[in-house]
Design a protein around this nucleic acid. Structure first.
Lengths: 241, 241
DNA sequence: TAGTGGTCTAGACCACAGC
DNA sequence: CTGTGGTCTAGACCACTAA
């Protein structure tokens, strides 16, 4: 008797969430606006109260809406995405800047023992190494070197990394879904080589980020060593108690 | 007919969570161990399946347990607390180091317009300003200046901040619960004054963190400007996709 | 196959907000 | 007062996992 709406295999509560999300994203519903109540959603979508409730509680959990006991459910103010793992391309898009990336060098190395270890590989593993300078507009502001297992991602060096982001390539070509990254952050200064690549005086303070990116399966997949020019692009973090 | 177990006003699902949490924290249940199933919990706690389910789904959401479809619910491996807002004292304790803090100066200022603005106060507001040097063992490694509204926290300057942490003082003496902090991170180098305070050569790269701490009520409460010696104490962050 | 989590029903009473 | 979200019942069928 139940499972009435189970046509396309999509759970009812997800279908409800989609309709609400669409109304918010399209601008029909604006921050602060009241959302249909549990009872209203139950009626219009012909589901039970618990199901409508599930949909709303879930949306509230991810910060899309805000529930106020006795008052209703309201569209939450748009969130700045803190602590989000984003590709360079995505970061630039979020600030509505044009991404610009130049490959300085790429190749295969096999003597990076420490990095191999961080990737959970044997000491002398062959690693794809891609060195890039990233710019916002004309101004170079970051130097990044990334490493991946050459055995697993050997075709990567032929990929058009100058146009397509590494994240997208991994997800599309290799079916690897990236889940999270641990980052180690400290400060250093520009040596001769970096100074030239970033067009800075030697000794300029730089933010150094060592990033280990994990897949959804918990596998360490990419190691990135980044040096970022301070000032124009600061790192934002939100910490919770 | 329902509400049977509603004696102390505590929801049933929370009571169930408590019993599971206790068994995990006491070591009776270890990571990887299987937890009572929904049906088992429903029987033993004399609640419906949905209620038992609510308890488990909630615990899974906060990372205490892990649910595997068709297999069961298992105790999740202990989590390293990434992106946690911690006081200096707590951070040191987490690394089992002795916290050591020296107040360089403290007083009230009223011309820090930008900081007042960040705290959501009028431009010329009076602010308590406390300047400290923090050490691990003998080695000074951080310079922190924090600001709070002088009107709201005027007694703070008499507090024994050298022995009791600012967090604890705020929570105990003023009933302020801190919830989260937004941090702006970049790199700079030591000027003459900082070099002396941290016993470093001038020009040494430093991590600079501007931290705005919010209360549970969403009020900006403390502003901290910190300079951290690089190397021995690096910042760890986890970002999620 | 037995047991588990995932989704869902058609209701119920309570606590709270706002008029 | 009405309407809201918060909690809860006593079941149901499905999809999945492991023996």
């Amino acid at each position: 008797m139940n499972m009435r709406g189970r046509n396309s295999g999509e759970p009812a509560y997800r279908r409800i969430q989609r309709t609400i999300r669409r109304r918010i994203e399209s601008g029909h519903l604006r921050p602060g606006d009241i959302v249909d109540s549990e009872r209203e959603l139950a009626r219009t979508h012909r589901v039970s109260l618990m199901t409508a409730r599930h949909a709303l509680a879930d949306l509230a959990r991810e910060g899309m809406v805000e529930r106020r006991h006795g008052a209703g459910t309201f569209v939450a103010p748009p969130k700045i995405h803190f602590n989000k793992l984003m590709s360079y391309t995505e970061q630039m898009a979020a600030r509505s800047l044009t991404a610009n990336s130049r490959i300085v060098s790429s190749g295969v190395v096999n003597r990076e023992q420490e990095i191999a270890a961080r990737l959970g590989l044997p000491p002398m593993s062959r690693l794809v190494r891609v060195e890039r300078v990233r710019s916002a507009g004309d101004e170079p502001f970051a130097h990044e070197v990334c490493y991946l297992s050459a055995d697993e991602y050997h075709g990567l060096m032929d990929a058009p990394l100058e146009r397509t982001s590494l994240f997208v390539t991994l997800e599309r070509e290799y079916g690897v879904e990236l889940a999270y990254a641990d980052e180690e952050i400290d400060a250093t200064d520009a040596d001769q080589k970096i100074a030239e690549l970033l067009a800075l005086p030697r000794g300029t303070p730089l933010l150094r980020i060592r990033q280990l990116i994990f897949s959804t399966k918990g596998r360490a997949t990419v190691y990135v060593l980044g040096l970022y020019r301070s000032g124009r692009h600061t790192l934002m973090i939100r910490r919770f108690r």
